[in-house]
Amino acid sequence: MSIHSRAAAYAAAAILAVTFATSGAQAYQCKTSYVQAEAVGNLRAKAAKSAKTFWTTQAKNQYGLAWSVWPIAASKSQDCNWTGNQFYCIVKAKPCLYVVP
């Protein structure tokens, strides 16, 4: 490979890297409606985790597996309250789908 070919290849790679870095290579498509789930538990963290697990199940049942990923959901909220003998947690979020650009 000649020096000019190698330089052109490096330049093209640099342009692609800058394009992906500035274009936000991650894209999400989100539903407009919320999915809500609730759970109870003796520990707040356990109740919250269970509620998120139930949210995932409900989102999967409604929209399919690709829409059921809690970490990429939009407009997430979590509310946990002590009821006197256990924590009661409600989570809600809009399911999102990762779209490859």
Rank of each mutant, 00 (worst) to 15 (best):
residue 45 A to G: 12
residue 40 V to F: 07
residue 25 A to M: 14
residue 63 Y to C: 06
residue 73 A to Q: 04
residue 101 P to L: 02
residue 98 Y to C: 03
residue 91 V to M: 02
residue 98 Y to V: 12
residue 19 T to N: 08
residue 72 I to E: 00
residue 64 G to M: 04
residue 48 A to R: 08
residue 100 V to R: 10
residue 3 I to F: 11
residue 72 I to Q: 01
residue 45 A to R: 11
residue 51 A to F: 04
residue 21 A to C: 09
residue 87 F to Q: 08
residue 29 Q to T: 10
residue 95 P to C: 00
residue 41 G to F: 09
residue 74 A to L: 00
residue 101 P to I: 00
residue 52 K to V: 07
residue 78 Q to L: 14
residue 65 L to S: 09
residue 86 Q to W: 07
residue 59 A to E: 04
residue 84 G to Q: 02
residue 4 H to E: 15
residue 24 G to H: 09
residue 14 A to V: 12
residue 17 A to Q: 07
residue 53 T to W: 03
residue 64 G to V: 06
residue 61 N to A: 13
residue 58 Q to W: 06
residue 20 F to A: 14
residue 64 G to Q: 03
residue 47 A to R: 05
residue 23 S to F: 13
residue 90 I to W: 03
residue 8 A to S: 13
residue 50 S to F: 05
residue 32 T to C: 00
residue 8 A to P: 02
residue 67 W to K: 02
residue 67 W to R: 02
residue 22 T to W: 08
residue 89 C to Y: 02
residue 70 W to R: 05
residue 17 A to G: 05
residue 83 T to S: 11
residue 33 S to I: 14
residue 6 R to F: 15
residue 3 I to H: 09
residue 39 A to V: 08
residue 23 S to P: 04
residue 13 A to W: 11
residue 90 I to K: 13
residue 88 Y to H: 14
residue 57 T to D: 09
residue 93 A to N: 03
residue 43 L to I: 08
residue 2 S to G: 14
residue 94 K to T: 01
residue 52 K to T: 10
residue 53 T to G: 11
residue 75 S to R: 03
residue 49 K to D: 12
residue 55 W to R: 05
residue 1 M to R: 10
residue 18 V to Q: 11
residue 64 G to P: 04
residue 44 R to E: 13
residue 18 V to C: 15
residue 11 A to M: 15
residue 83 T to I: 06
residue 98 Y to F: 11
residue 43 L to R: 13
residue 8 A to I: 14
